[in-house]
Structure formats: structure tokens, C-alpha cells
């Protein structure tokens, strides 16, 4: 009977090894569970303001009271969600709204009324003030253009 299973000490050693292995796996598992149970709340806690900011950034449109009154040849800086943006009333009475963050290194750009373009002071990038196209300097991409609706007492800017 038992002598059929060969040397009786052999399986005992195996069992000892597997018990050791089991304990190792169990301890590692429990440790990982604790790390996750502590790490997850801490991650969510630290990320909480990021989530809030992302929610604020997700706005679809912004209505700017009395923005319809801004003179021709000037620009109005405003926040589209949390990003700086600009509303330009051109001399030809056309309206353009653009994201005001330079696509090169993230500086806020400026409308240059005299030259009729948009200029970034950080590295000298320039954009077309009507299309947002990058026309000079290091910027790799055009500025994002928004849709503009001029109302009797306000201007509504929305994502295209």
C-alpha cells in the first residue's frame, strides 16, 4: 500500500516545499492587495483636482455677455472651460474665436492688430488671425478655431 508510493520521505519534502511556496504566494498576494487598497484611494485623492479640471475643460460652449460690443480690430481674451481663448472682431466685421495656447510650447498668444496676425512672445511663432494657421516660427500646428455666433447682447463661442 504505502510502499507503492516509493520512499515515504520523498513526498513529505515535496509537501514542505509546496507549503513554503503557498505561503510565499499568499503573502505576496495579501501584500499586493494591501498596496492596492491603500494606493487606489491615494491615487484617486491626488487625481481629484485633475478630474475636476478635466470636467471644467469639457465645456461645449461659452456665452460672453456684451462681447458683441467689442470694437473692430480688437480681441477679447476669455476662458473656454479652463483654457485661455481669444475672440477677435476683425476690421472687416468678421468674427473669429481661437484657442489662445501656442501649439509650440504652450504660451498664451497675443493678437497683433497692426500686423493682423497672432503672435507668440515665447519663441516668435505667428498664426493667421482668421484661420489660425501657423504661418511663421516654430509652431507645428494651427490654433484650434471655434464657432462664433453673434447675438443681440452677447457672443456664443462653441466647439466646431
Amino acid at each position: 500500500m504505502s510502499d507503492l508510493t516509493a520512499d515515504p520521505t520523498e513526498p513529505q519534502v515535496d509537501e514542505e516545499m509546496s507549503r513554503r511556496g503557498f505561503v510565499r504566494v499568499a503573502v505576496t498576494g495579501v501584500t499586493l492587495a494591501y498596496v492596492a487598497a491603500i494606493g487606489y484611494p491615494i491615487y484617486r485623492y491626488l487625481n481629484s483636482s485633475v478630474e475636476k479640471s478635466a470636467a471644467m475643460a469639457a465645456v461645449k460652449d461659452v456665452t460672453l455677455d456684451k462681447a458683441n460690443d467689442i470694437p473692430k480690430g480688437t480681441a477679447l481674451m476669455f476662458k473656454f472651460g479652463i483654457r485661455p481663448a481669444m475672440l477677435i472682431h476683425h476690421e472687416d466685421d468678421s468674427w473669429v474665436a481661437l484657442d489662445a495656447v501656442c501649439t509650440h510650447m504652450g504660451c498664451t498668444v497675443k493678437f497683433d492688430a497692426a500686423k493682423g496676425n497672432i503672435h507668440c512672445a515665447c519663441h516668435g511663432g505667428t498664426y493667421d488671425a482668421k484661420t489660425g494657421q501657423n504661418i511663421g516660427g516654430p509652431p507645428p500646428r494651427p490654433l484650434t478655431v471655434y464657432k462664433v455666433a453673434v447675438n443681440p447682447t452677447s457672443v456664443t463661442v462653441s466647439r466646431v
Binding site: P41, I42, R44, Y45, N47, S48, S49, E51
Partner: peptide
Amino acid sequence: FETQFGWLI
């Protein structure tokens, strides 16, 4: 009341 898991911390 607003921050995720802030109450817990």
C-alpha cells in the same frame, strides 16, 4: 465632501 477619498484620508 468633494475630493475623492478626502473623507477617508
